[in-house]
Write a protein that binds this DNA or RNA. Sequence first.
DNA 1: GTGTCAGATTAGATATTATCTAAATAAGGA
DNA 2: TCCTTATTTAGATAATATCTAATCTGACAC
Lengths: 141, 141
Amino acid sequence: MGVDTVRRSLESSGLRCTPQRYAVMAFLMEQTGHPTAAEIFEAVNRADPRSSRATTYNNLRDLVKAGLVREVAVEGRAGRFDVTGMKHHHFICDRCGKVEDMEWYDVPRPAARTLGKRIFRECELIFRGLCTKCTRGHVSH
Amino acid sequence: MGVDTVRRSLESSGLRCTPQRYAVMAFLMEQTGHPTAAEIFEAVNRADPRSSRATTYNNLRDLVKAGLVREVAVEGRAGRFDVTGMKHHHFICDRCGKVEDMEWYDVPRPAARTLGKRIFRECELIFRGLCTKCTRGHVSH
DNA sequence: GTGTCAGATTAGATATTATCTAAATAAGGA
DNA sequence: TCCTTATTTAGATAATATCTAATCTGACAC
Ligand SMILES: [Mn+2]
Ligand SMILES: [Mn+2]
Ligand SMILES: [Zn+2]
Ligand SMILES: [Zn+2]
């Protein structure tokens, strides 16, 4: 994805395209994992432009609010982020906690009866088990 | 669920049945919501026996490790807990963040192809949208 | 290009959530 | 009743996130 695509997606969300904000988006887009705010902060500051901690958090919050980034639901204490855009599910490793993307597929939505007066927007699937790395040396059964 | 049931489930997990630990289990079992550690700490200490903060956290960790309690995957910063036992899914409100239980139903597991060398254990479904309370006054479309 | 200013950035303080430490206590079996 | 060891405790500390208020700058109008 090119520089202009990022710039335009920021602008169309009413966000200025600042070097710091751009760097967060660019880093997240080249990631296959789900970095924490601390990891994003560190990665962005390995090169110019520098960005303060507050700015990194501010930008993550703004990008999430704009729908360009999401905070994934995990049970750890540190928020983990990925770019929205391509729909996908997640696999979380029981052993090492790694969060991996999984191919998206449609899930039967809940029955109207169980939904009640709630307004349904989407389903999200979390698979659990052992990741490829943690599987090594593991004997099933 | 009776006193003895809790006691036995603790003992069969190799955990001593202490008043503090029992209080955490008892509170979680009467909850329909998904309290944070701070809420559990507060609730437990509204009456005897008292429990320190460290003990509340220790017990939650031990109960999770024993499989009697689980930490729910949510995107907030504070861990939220519920008792395992009855399988169910979750509905998370976009607006107020409330986590509600939803009737369990089986989900088609991912294709072996997308699973690769991972070892699959279970699927967990998260529904998103607006809870009943946040629906009030909301105009769809 | 220059001026304007709301939005953005910053360092550091503060808040929130969770874990650690080491001494004291008590559960449960012998 | 005694013994062993898991558990509890207060307080310190760590990890994560937000706030503050001074300063700066991106984007737009001219
Ligand atoms: Mn992802
Ligand atoms: Mn639940
Ligand atoms: Zn793993
Ligand atoms: Zn709600």
